[in-house]
Amino acid sequence: MFEPDALFELEHDPDGSATFAGLAELPLAELMAPDWAAALSGVEAELRGVLRFVAGEVAAGHPVLPAPSNVLRAFRQPLADVKVLIVGQDPYPTPGHAVGLSFSVGPHVRPLPRSLANIYRELEADLGIPPRVHGDLSAWAGQGVLLLNRVMTVRAGSAGSHRRKGWEDITTAAVEALAARRAPDGSPLPLAAVLWGKDAESVRRLLPSVPAVASAHPSPLSASRGFFGSRPFSRVNALLHGQGAADVIWELPPAP
């Protein structure tokens, strides 16, 4: 089992000196798990291009989130271990919030982003699990839940600012790689998708044979239009059961 603490270790950037320009020059195998590096080799040039774009943003004086050491964090979880895909839009634009996993924040962020608070509200309604005071979702990631933003960087304070800059090519390739995985007998590996909102819904065509739970986004602007009451957590576990896979334990530790 993939260990949550292994998802991102500070030895990747022990002194906080990583830069987006530096990431653009590193081998893929130093940026992500080996099987992800192999799966994304076909879009390596595009990844380096978007990292150079982000480096240019920083050089022009625009703070970018998340930190360079976290931007590809989702891909440090091995591709082979993924059994649930949760697609987000782009990182939280509030400084200190984005950590490289969709919807997750650092363990000491208070108050929680409202989208995450709504996710916790639905989790309690669905499975009776009380909300946590922290927003660290790495325990989900450690069980094979890929928390993937469709766009993986953002200008601080400007939601959606890095759309159509190249990240969509990378995340399209990632979703296609997930859908293409096969067991030794040729059967698809267990996978369920959670698609919240229009950005997430855009990947459905990439998952033709993957069962999905789709609803409105948990944002305060849309949660009341179909997210609340959608019971995504119990439905995902039912989809995993149907494929012979173990449940995700959605209850997070009381303290991260």
Rank of each mutant, 00 (worst) to 15 (best):
L123S: 03
V154Y: 00
V145F: 01
G166R: 02
H162I: 07
I170V: 11
A159P: 14
M152P: 02
L123M: 05
A179D: 06
T171C: 02
Y120M: 09
N149E: 12
A139P: 05
V154G: 01
P131E: 10
S138A: 11
D136T: 05
E122Q: 08
S158E: 15
L146Y: 06
R121T: 15
V154Q: 03
E176S: 15
P130M: 04
G160K: 01
A125V: 11
I129E: 02
A156M: 08
P131V: 04
D169C: 12
A174P: 07
P131H: 06
T171Y: 00
E124R: 14
I119S: 03
K165Q: 13
E168M: 08
R150A: 09
L137D: 05
V145I: 09
V145T: 00
E168C: 03
R150K: 07
G135Q: 00
A179V: 11
D136Q: 11
T172S: 13
H162L: 04
I129R: 07
R164F: 15
I170P: 01
S158N: 13
G128W: 14
A174V: 04
D126A: 11
V154C: 05
L178G: 09
W167Q: 03
S158M: 14
I129D: 02
A183G: 10
L146C: 07
L146I: 14
A141M: 12
L127A: 12
A156R: 06
R132C: 14
V175P: 05
Y120L: 11
N149A: 06
A139T: 00
V154N: 02
D136M: 10
R155Y: 11
D136S: 08
E168A: 02
R121N: 13
R132M: 14
R155N: 14
S161R: 01
W140L: 11
R121C: 14
Q143C: 07
I170E: 06
L123W: 08
D126L: 04
L148A: 08
T153H: 05
R132P: 01
A180K: 00
G142H: 00
H134C: 06
H134F: 06
S158Y: 13
A141F: 05
G160Y: 06
G128P: 08
S138C: 15
V133G: 15
I129K: 09
S158I: 15
R181D: 06
A159T: 12
E176H: 13
E176T: 15
R163G: 15
A174L: 08
G157Y: 10
T172I: 14
A177S: 05
M152Q: 10
H134N: 13
W140C: 05
R181Q: 09
R164I: 11
V145W: 01
S158W: 12
G128N: 07
Q143G: 10
G142T: 01
E122R: 04
V145Y: 00
A141G: 11
A174M: 12
